[in-house]
Design a protein around this nucleic acid. Sequence first.
RNA 1: GCUAGCGUAGCUCAAUCGGCAGAGCAGUUGAUUUGUAAUCAACAGGUUGUGGGUUCGAGUCCCGCCGCUAGCUCCA
Length: 669
Amino acid sequence: MLRIRLPDGKVLESKGQITVAEAARMIGPKLAKDALAGEVDGKVIGVDYLLPADGEVAFRVFTQKDPQALGVMRHSCAHVMARAVMRLFPDVQLAFGPTIEGGFYYDMGLAHSITEDDFPRIEEEMRKIVGQDEPFERFVEPRERALALCDQMHQPLKVEHIGDGLKDERTLSFYRQGEFVDLCRGPHVPSAGRIGAFKLLSVAGAYWKGDQKRQQLQRLYGTAFFTQQDLEAHLHQLEEAKRRDHRVLGKQLELFTTSPLVGSGLILWLPKGAMIRATLETFVREELVKRGYEPVYTPHIGRVEMYETSGHFPYYSDSQFAPIEMEEGERYLLKPMNCPHHIMIYQSKGRSYRELPVRLAEFGTVYRYEKSGQLGGMTRVRGFTQDDAHLFCTPEQVADEFRGCLEMTQMMLKAVGMDDYRVRLGFRDPASDKYVGRRELWDRAEAELEDVCKTMNLPNMEKPVRGEAAFYGPKADFLVTDCLGREWQLGTVQLDYNLPSEERFGLEYIGADNAPHRPVMIHRAPLGSLERFIGVLIEHFAGAFPLWLAPEQVRVLPVSEKFTTYGTHVTEQLRAAGLRVTVDVRPEKIGAKIRDAQLAHVPYMFVVGAREMEGGSVSVRDRIDGDLGAMPLVAAIDKLKAEVAARTVRQKVKMSRPQIGGGTAENEY
RNA sequence: GCUAGCGUAGCUCAAUCGGCAGAGCAGUUGAUUUGUAAUCAACAGGUUGUGGGUUCGAGUCCCGCCGCUAGCUCCA
């Protein structure tokens, strides 16, 4: 006797052992017809699964309306795609075909290299398969027979996977769909006809099991939805996202550029982009002073020996610009990190407990030789500037200082209206040997960090992730998602007991007991890299920066050349008031001037003609709300200055994570 | 770094099968003197990323390099 508890609290009873589909039929015939998958005690399963013979289960049925069903259907669609590819090309080796956010992919090894030109015929073949509406049939085999079956189907990657990834499984499940049989945990929708609208999106290389040393496969990406409308809405959204790509806007709005002659991954800040950066830097500097930081400056290079002591050189030698070799064995490294330099400043004199915490801040430019394939826009570059600082404090001060750093990061993100982020605690992976320092120090640092974060009510905070620590200490990273759904680490706060230690720099301060003690270090960069931060900011605002950050805050638009003199006068007044202003004196019609200013995302336009000249006023046009009417020039200046001072963020469209609609099933093979 | 795709005027793009490199915008000049998202005209703009090769002939085909893009891998 099985008791089946439904979401609404009702309980059904079944004497014999029944499948999900049969249970659905007990609830209602319509539901049974629409059922795509089920859930038993929180686990998503197919409609053909048998429920337990007795006991009680929490049960529900998923239809098109449920995001969980979308995940299951996409996985089925991945199978259909693989089947289509196998029909079109010989000797296809299947690897993994999971669902991902926004769709699915399937990794395959085959001789023909698939290009986008192949997509139409693959999709055509998929349509045929969906049209035939054959069922997905699950069957389970013991290990030996499963191995024999995969071998017989010439699927060496599946054979290998049974041997390592699935070595603890006694039985293995397969899904058959016509001639296509695939080792797969499932679940799947009942039949191919239940797959709605789909589209192949892209193809790229991927290593077998993510290992660079192993075979490279072709990863075919696609997406699927239950309706054509949903698919089109999704594709439209991808197009929109492309339009606010910071690389596109950066060019259009003349914010930054690069040059092959300067080198790839090296950003040239154009005047407008530099203005945004300078404004942001000023904001940060003012905040640092308020919070008791002391600005310092350090060189762009340092002796290799210093980085050997810190550990950066041995740990990251392959992602650094090679050392500069001078005579007599003198070697310098282009600095990959600011911390050793700041440590030298700490060490420049004896320190007393009375002066701690010492907080040394610098917009420090660092250089890292990132591999060519991972460069992109402003978000992944080879030279970048961190809003960096290092805090040296007593062990008793750690919690307060760490909290202060997190608060500053939250404050900065709030100031630019970026509230959609998550915080990830990165702890060490106990099994890895890539970390420096003693275990007790690590345990202590991790516990402290977690304690502080727990008291802070950080948004979207997650459990600590093992293996995400810096090599010298655990950290809290602030991750934001860009308009294309990619997630970027911006701010970071890291706790470090190791660089101050005897084995590294041996830092000290004299305590109240007149004896030397070891300080603790905190590394922190609320914005992370200015390059990446502003790249993400461009997308966040879609190029339309709030008044306080806009490179050009006001554009004065004389109605005709007759009013150039008055327009210039207004411009001078605005400039004298500390606003960033230009005047458009081209012999153009006012409509054209407005259009150009709108397209340049200038927050305010001051239209001036005969009426305004008469009364010493301006007609204010707002980028978002349009014509606000005339007001005295002084009033307009006050209005703008107030908005700058308040750092008001007004956005027409708010950046949102791509709404990709739903659930991914965890089906990694 | 790996796999794949791409590279034409400042920008966005066109150029049939290998057969005279072209348009819009931006720019310059002139005319127009304009009231809330594009006034008109003329002019100028190119070693088709780069170096080789095939060919009577290469933007187009082949090879190397540089750069960009997607994904993989990595990210102090």
